[in-house]
Amino acid sequence: MTGEHLDATIARRVRRLETLLEEKGLITGERVDEAIDAFLASSSPANGARVVARAWTDEAYRSRLLADGTAAVRELGYMEGSYQRLRVVENTADTHNVIVCTLCSCYPLRLLGPSPSWYKSEAYRSRVVREPRSVLREFGLELPGTVDITVWDSSAESRYMVLPRRPEGTEGLTEEELAALVTRNALIGTATV
């Protein structure tokens, strides 16, 4: 079966399921539309980038963010109503953090948006806990041997986000300009800024 054929087959089965559940009075198409909109609307990597830029420019905020990530991002209007906790882990000159979920695909959706395909892949999930330096090298990130790497395997109710190091020479930038430097991979830990 070709990929396209397979896609058409599953698309048909999903439609069939939706129809059956509507007939049974369990859902409406509108409710499903709303759920998709809510999934996409409340989450984007721009949220995480904004949190990082605030932490880079406001030392008191940075302290609050590292002490209680959930409360600190709620100050900026994120993760309202979420039952999950957020822990922000800070990269320094000697330490680098990277995030994974080896058991499924747990991810700080509200702050980073839907995850990239590689994050959900068996290749990433199997390898980063075992050989993080090789994995980071595949992302183009070569860390000095003196840098300690901690891999955070999200196995329960906490979600993790990396606070990258602020690049040198950015003293004159506004918070907005700083946020624009922060990539999704930097928030996961597979890149630096």
Binding site: V129, G145, D148, I149, T150, V151, S155, A156, E157
Partner: peptide
Amino acid sequence: GDHHVVLDL
């Protein structure tokens, strides 16, 4: 290996 892994248990 010289890294660490943190799990929530």
